[in-house]
Write a protein that binds this DNA or RNA. Structure first.
Length: 928
RNA sequence: AGGAGCGUAGCUCAGUUGGUUAGAGCAUCGCCUCGACAAGGCGAGGGUCGUCGGUUCGAAUCCGACCGUUCCUACCA
């Protein structure tokens, strides 16, 4: 058998699985009717690539899906992608720009054609990456948020919401991206602290120009749109001025001084300029005081015709300079201060976002939100971890109407038409609209230019992908879906909206459970992102990447290119040799291992290496098993072959049952880390470290009977086979590769491990007696190993071992396991010495009351053994003191449960005896 | 500012309802080419569980305060 080389085994298996359609839902062969189980993929951006978050998330889901599939459920993991309106439009625009073409010159229709082309061309990337990861998605029913069915669903939802009055159009202040020239969601605005200035301007009173009110602003250019100056109603300094007017500099306007409790008297001068057209708080205040709203900007944040001629057409920052300078020259600039402030930037474009007054479409959200809140309150939907519900409730209970229009071309165009008089008509298409509203053919209609927020279509994801608005069998079978796995940042974006829309349209919850996973961060706990250059590409961990390529990749997409040098340095330090090719299974196993209940997870490449080693260990163990079981000449499983299972065989089978139980529990509670840990420890610490070793004397020993050998061979191969099935949901490739090598006499006639059954724990196979026997055996072996290790006696050198002061059961165990002990301990001889005999001076190890002795006789250094004994005795004395302290405490004895008290008492007795024995040995050794 | 999470070995993390001698992997230090595996085996060292208080017979675990850190929400012009 070859070495474990993930790259050689992984890709071909996936292809085979897919070709054979193993990932489509299927009924169990027993016609008892399988339970449907369905998870919808959070649709990745169709033109995007897989990032760490995806890799992590989809690995988790894949284990759940494979687990359920093997358990016999009719399992569907629905694949699909998202059109990602703004992101895709940016990319296509950039591509055109590179060709020297302006999108605006190309026109809408041609542009959309290009976007589709790009989707076709790049849309396969993320699918390929998901396949590399081993994600067992059903590709045959793959959907896209702009495919025909989704379009139909979107139209239906938009029209009906509109007809019910739940969609309306209004002029409001929105977050505006002047680069992309579209509204964006609050959630797509990222505010970071940046250095700015605070300008203090003096505004003269209209009736008394020698008197000023000083206002402070971070955005001087907006002063042209001021429609009031506000003070706090209780502010003694200004109370008397309320109701008077300011004559606004640089304009010919007079604006009132108003009183409002929003104003903080302690900040600055206590006077605030109010610009309802360009600030959300001011907008609200403007409403309270019925102030006019002046919009100063064009859609690219240059100044428009509302401002004095001199400033028209200027960019907002140029205008800022000019206005500041002009006010200064008028003597109205009081001072400029440095000021740290949170600057809102567009997540996608990186430019500063402006509150901007524009016509937008909204969903009236409260009627949809109420039932959605209730669904979580009453447990119809359960979040794991539970406290993620707080995020949901916090968002939902303070929810604002949803601005769903985007001034873009790529996406679902809003199905609204305007007559010349501005009247709005909503319907599926123009013809339907004419019919619906009884419009004559000569009535001209113009369609709304805007498209819908991408999340509008993805809100319909769970049911529209199953065929809605058609009443399909798939919808009937799989909805509500069983589980949604996503990050906490997506709760408000998507989870909440799916819940609202799904309840509204099919009166079911979209999913019964939501598992919120942690965020994978870099080694410093920072969120990974392309723009920060600290991201990792899962493919680079699977396939490996050179340092130079990694540096190039990381510095290629920076929002702030000046950070390139710093990122390069950090990258060279963290990955001086690039990243090795670890393979998919090890990466996946890493993901499970770090998926604990914590929120942030620092990604550590050393762990990937550790789990690669684990896969290697499993590979080699299988190699050993095959060598000893599949040789033709052995014929271990011939019909009529009698098999005898040893205590060791029964023990490993028992350990396996416990492992299955642990994995089951872990999967039920979404503790992927515990599932991974249970499997890791079983394979490495029990199967490899002990069972395989203990099987050797039987397999190779001359005194083992044919039946004993057959029993052990059977246990070896069947335990391996079950272990492979147990581990398959987590490390699908290596388990399939190995499983295929298991003889069909053991694994049955199935074609693939993917569709094999998942191991079930069997109470009947648990064997406490065998466990105790092996625990005893391990204690003996460990004891002698400890002596060897401490005394630097190599394993090649046989040592005499004496069992002293043992009980009858010790004696029985010794005899029963003599050959195993001889193999593992490599003794010169194993002697039983009765309690009344006098043992030689020896190195001592206690197993219960029995002493395991290795006579010094030239082998062992006297001082080293004394040191070893002292260490042991000191430790035991410390333990005894602790236990005695408890027992001598009357309130402990009085109040603690009896079992706990008894345990402490037993402990003291045991320790006393142990200390006594060790002391006696010490005296003896010291006397030499 | 408000909310949440985290703080356990040099590093990355487990530690289930308070009842062990606080664990694992990596790293470190010895020894070992013994027929599955050096991507390995065997052994060892390493922690006053962020700090201070409280509840309790008993606290890494529960409560409070503080410090540090991360995330989310809202931001004072």
């Amino acid at each position: 058998m070859k070495k474990y080389q993930p790259q050689e085994i992984e890709q071909s298996w996936y292809q085979k699985w897919e070709e054979n359609d193993y990932f489509s839902p299927r009924d169990a062969e027993t016609d008892s009717g399988s339970t449907p189980f369905c998870i919808m993929i959070p649709p990745p951006n169709v033109t995007g690539t897989l990032h760490m978050g995806h890799g992590f998330q989809h690995s988790l889901v894949d284990s759940v899906i494979r687990h359920r599939r093997m358990k016999g459920d009719k399992t569907l993991w629905q694949m699909g992608t998202d059109h990602a309106g703004i992101s895709t439009q940016i990319i296509v625009t950039e591509q055109l720009a590179a060709e020297g073409v302006k999108a605006s010159e190309l026109g809408r229709e041609k542009f959309i054609e290009r976007a589709w082309q790009w989707k076709e061309q790049s849309g396969g990337t993320i699918s390929k990456q998901l396949r590399r990861l081993g994600a067992s998605l059903d590709w045959s029913t793959e959907r896209f948020t702009m495919d025909e069915g989704m379009c139909e669903a979107v139209l239906t939802v938009f029209e009906t919401l509109y007809d019910e009055g739940l969609i309306y159009r209004g002029k409001r202040l929105v977050n505006w991206d002047p680069e992309l020239r579209t509204s964006i969601s609050d959630l797509e605005v990222e505010s970071e602290e940046e250095k700015g200035n605070l300008w203090h301007f003096k505004y003269p009173l209209a009736e008394n120009p020698q008197t000023f009110l000083t206002v402070a602003t971070t955005r001087p250019e907006t002063m042209l749109g001021d429609t009031a100056v506000a003070v706090h109603p209780d502010d003694e300094r200004y109370k008397h001025l309320v109701g008077q007017e300011i004559s606004l500099p640089l304009t010919d306007r007079r604006i009132p001084i108003i009183a409002d409790r929003y104003v903080d008297q302690a900040f600055g001068t206590g006077c605030v300029k109010i610009t309802p057209g360009h600030d959300f708080n001011d907008y609200d205040m403007g409403k309270r005081h019925e102030l006019p709203v002046i919009n100063l900007f064009n859609d690219d944040a240059t100044l428009n015709g509302e401002v004095p001629q001199a400033y028209q057409g200027l960019d907002r920052y140029e205008a800022r300079k000019r206005i500041t300078a002009d006010l200064d020259s008028l003597g109205l600039l009081d001072k400029v201060e440095d000021h740290m402030m949170a600057v809102p930037r567009g997540e996608k474009s990186g430019v500063v976002i402006e509150p901007y007054l524009s016509d937008q479409w909204y969903v009236k959200i409260q009627p949809l939100a109420d039932p959605a809140i209730e669904a979580v309150e009453n447990g119809s939907i359960q979040f794991t971890p539970k406290n993620a519900e707080n995020t949901y409730f916090a968002w939902m209970r303070d929810i604002q109407d949803w601005c769903i229009s985007r001034q873009q071309w790529w996406g679902h165009q809003i199905p609204a038409w305007y007559a010349d008089d501005g009247q709005v008509y909503v319907g599926h298409d123009e013809q339907a609209v004419r019919l619906k509203y009884g419009l004559t053919a000569d009535q001209t209609l113009t369609r709304d230019e805007d498209v819908l927020d991408t999340w509008f279509s993805s809100a319909l994801w769970t049911f529209a992908t199953l065929g809605w608005p058609e009443k399909t069998e798939a919808l009937e079978t799989y909805h509500s879906t069983d589980l949604m796995v996503t990050g906490h940042d997506i709760i408000s974006f998507w989870v909440s909206r799916m819940i609202m829309m799904t309840l509204k349209y099919i009166d079911e919850v979209p999913f019964k459970k939501v598992y919120i996973h942690g965020l994978v961060t870099d080694a410093d706990g920072q969120k990974m992102s392309k723009s920060k250059g600290n991201g990792l590409d899962p493919m680079d961990i699977i396939d490996g990447i050179s340092l130079e390529d990694l540096v190039t990749k990381r510095t290629g997409h920076l929002l702030q290119p000046k950070k390139a040098a710093q990122i390069e340095k950090a990258t060279r330090k963290e990955y001086p040799e690039g990243i090795k090719a670890y393979g998919s299974d090890p990466l996946r196993f890493t993901f499970y291992s770090i998926a604990s209940s914590a929120r942030g997870i620092r990604f550590d490449m050393n762990r990937v290496e550790g789990y690669r080693n684990f896969c290697n260990k499993l590979w080699n163990a299988a190699n050993f098993v095959f060598m000893n079981t599949t040789d033709e000449s052995i014929e271990p499983f011939a019909e009529g072959q009698s098999r005898e299972q040893s205590v060791v065989d029964r023990w490993i089978v028992s350990e396996f049952q416990k492992t299955v139980e642990a994995v089951d529990l872990a999967m039920e509670t979404y503790r992927f880390d515990l599932a991974a840990k249970a499997i890791y420890e079983f394979v490495w610490d029990q199967l490899c470290d002990w069972y395989l070793e203990l099987s050797k004397p039987v397999l190779n020993g001359e005194d083992a009977t044919a039946a004993q050998k057959a029993g052990t061979r059977f246990t070896l191969i069947s335990t391996l086979e079950e272990t492979l099935r147990l581990a398959h949901p987590f490390i699908p490739f290596i388990t399939e590769e190995l499983w295929q090598q298991v003889p069909s006499t053991i694994r049955g006639n199935g074609d693939t491990i993917v569709l094999s059954s998942y191991p079930e724990a069997s109470e009947a196979l648990m064997d406490t007696e065998a466990e105790n026997d092996i625990a005893w055996l391990k204690a003996i072996v460990t004891g002698t190993r400890n002596i060897r290790g401490e005394m630097d006696i190599s394993f090649g050198k046989p040592i005499p071992v004496i069992f002293y002061k043992g009980s009858d059961s010790d004696k029985a165990r010794l005899e029963a396991n003599r050959s195993l002990l001889e193999f593992l301990v490599k003794p010169e001889r194993l002697d039983w010495l009765e309690a009344d005999a006098e043992p030689p001076a020896s190195a001592t190890h206690l197993v219960g009351d029995m002493q395991v002795l290795v006579p010094l006789s030239g082998l062992i250094d006297k001082d080293a053994e004394l040191a070893r004994l002292n260490k042991e005795i000191e430790k035991k004395i410390k333990d005894r003191a602790r236990a005695e302290g408890k027992i001598n405490n009357p309130s402990f004895v009085a109040k603690a449960p009896e079992a706990v008290v008894q345990k402490e008492k037993d402990k003291v007795v045991d320790l006393n005896s142990a200390i006594e024995q060790l002391e006696a040995q010490k005296t003896k050794v010291a006397a030499l």
